[in-house]
Amino acid sequence: MMPIDRERSDADMNSLKRTKLAYSILSIVLIVIGIYLIIRPQTAMLTVCRVLGVVLMFYGIIRLLGYFSHDMYQLAFQFDLAMGIFSLVAGCIFLFRTEWIAELIPAFIGVIVLIDAVFKIQTSLDAKRFGISKWWLILILAVIAGALGAMLLVIPLKVVEFVMVLIGINLVIDGVLNFWVVHDTVRMIDSL
Rank of each mutant, 00 (worst) to 15 (best):
F77H: 12
V48N: 06
M72H: 15
K158A: 12
G146Y: 00
R6V: 14
V113Y: 01
M188A: 15
F108V: 10
R97E: 12
V182P: 05
F79T: 06
S133L: 13
I169P: 03
D116Q: 09
L153N: 10
G175W: 02
L177T: 10
D126L: 10
F58C: 12
T43S: 13
I138N: 00
I112P: 03
C92V: 11
D116L: 10
G146F: 02
S9P: 08
P156W: 05
W180M: 14
M1T: 14
I115V: 15
S87T: 04
A90F: 09
H70L: 06
L65R: 11
E99Q: 13
F162T: 09
R187P: 05
Q42Y: 13
V89C: 09
I132M: 03
Q74E: 14
I109M: 10
T47S: 11
R50V: 10
Y73H: 13
I61E: 01
R129H: 12
K134C: 11
G34D: 03
V55C: 04
A145C: 08
T98V: 06
M57V: 08
I105C: 05
I85F: 02
F108R: 06
I31D: 03
E103C: 04
M72N: 14
P156F: 00
F179M: 08
S191P: 06
I155C: 05
I28P: 00
G84P: 02
I121C: 06
Y59P: 00
M72D: 14
L171G: 01
I173P: 00
